[in-house]
Design a protein around this nucleic acid. Sequence first.
DNA 1: TTCACACATTAGGTTAGTCTAATACTCGGG
DNA 2: CCCGAGTATTAGACTAACCTAATGTGTGAA
Lengths: 231, 231
Amino acid sequence: MPVLLRDAGPPLTPSVEDYLKAIYHLSSQGGFATTSDIAGMLELAPPSVSGMVKRLSETGLIEHVPYRGVQLTAQGRHAALKMIRRHRVLELYLTQQLGYDWGGVHAEAERLEHAVSDELIERMARALGNPQYDPHGDPIPTAGGEIEEAELLSVADAPLGTKLELRQVGTQDPARLRYFAEHGLTPGVLLRVHERQPFNGPTTIALVPSGEHRVVGRELAQLLWCQEIGR
Amino acid sequence: MPVLLRDAGPPLTPSVEDYLKAIYHLSSQGGFATTSDIAGMLELAPPSVSGMVKRLSETGLIEHVPYRGVQLTAQGRHAALKMIRRHRVLELYLTQQLGYDWGGVHAEAERLEHAVSDELIERMARALGNPQYDPHGDPIPTAGGEIEEAELLSVADAPLGTKLELRQVGTQDPARLRYFAEHGLTPGVLLRVHERQPFNGPTTIALVPSGEHRVVGRELAQLLWCQEIGR
DNA sequence: TTCACACATTAGGTTAGTCTAATACTCGGG
DNA sequence: CCCGAGTATTAGACTAACCTAATGTGTGAA
């Protein structure tokens, strides 16, 4: 029997679990998750989020900087990863064992993840051969709460030609963020490094699948963090 | 694809689903489910039940006779059977496909039954070959909301010798109910009809497994409804 | 340097579901 | 026939989680 996650403190409500997951996803690409981002992701009114944020930071699951945003504490991150493990194991189990297709599986997992026991998830994982990736290719955290951190390469360093997914933009500066957005360089976009000039010169990026080119200087290229898409 | 249950009205909360299931089980052996019986089964305080009973009867899921008890309406019965189908399919799936044992399976199903979709239950049922009985031998309602009603025989009519389970006591009269209880004749008890005198004479019952005998007149024997235990 | 706008927070209200304490009802036994 | 024990219900309070409306805050653009 694999080691299960130790349960720290009282059980979390489904709602709290959803907040933690949302904050995990939002703050994985940048430092803080903002109130309105969380509200947008969970389809709630911003004041509802403010209220929950207060409670979550009182119980030590998140760190709140007023008017800035929130980040997960170690404890909150652990709980979030547990939920993500549940979600991804469920998605994989439903598709592989019960013939679900891509479409239906997310909503089903979204509801089940709050109801399953650790034991059930471990049994499902075992039935699947303790898989490492879900049907979308996302890594499944271990029962111990560890996740394969995507190895991120900046566009300034990535090898030429390989297909990359833009994962993080390493700045909070609105001018730079706006500039990137205007040029279609937002997280999730696929691209290749097409050419790089020597002596810290500019990098040419080819967007995938359009093939359009973007030329960025070294300073900006260093802010664009990507993951190699091998799978 | 089998016909799924049509959903009548707004979705029910988990709490409401639990009430309906409890009322179904309690009123299957006798006319009314009382407030305190429901409170006992759900481990709630009686006033909580009174409050919920009011709401459920306002939404047409139950019929409430004040100070007497409640019964399910057709709509409530339908919803209860849907939950029982979910529960029993889940129990069977968890034991047969995921190696759960008898012990753990009930609690797991109890939580999952509120989170699964109809589609998931139908997929599980199909994976199991559309079974008719759960691991305990209880019948699984169909997706259409029908359940194999146990064929009940009164002790006055049952054949001699076959093993029977006492399922219902067909009276509300306290004197008779007390008499039955004092003689160990309560629902769930196993017995055989040992001997029956002619000309509407008394019936002798042998309790199982103790073998003790009880002699009851025809009037009382007609009140004891049993199910043949063949399986 | 200021000021308007976008965003965050506070204030106050709602619903579901629970609780305890107080009150109302029913019915069997004297 | 009435009364008290045992139930049922009402009254009133609490928590979690949401909402809308009102109020604060912080910053980019003029």
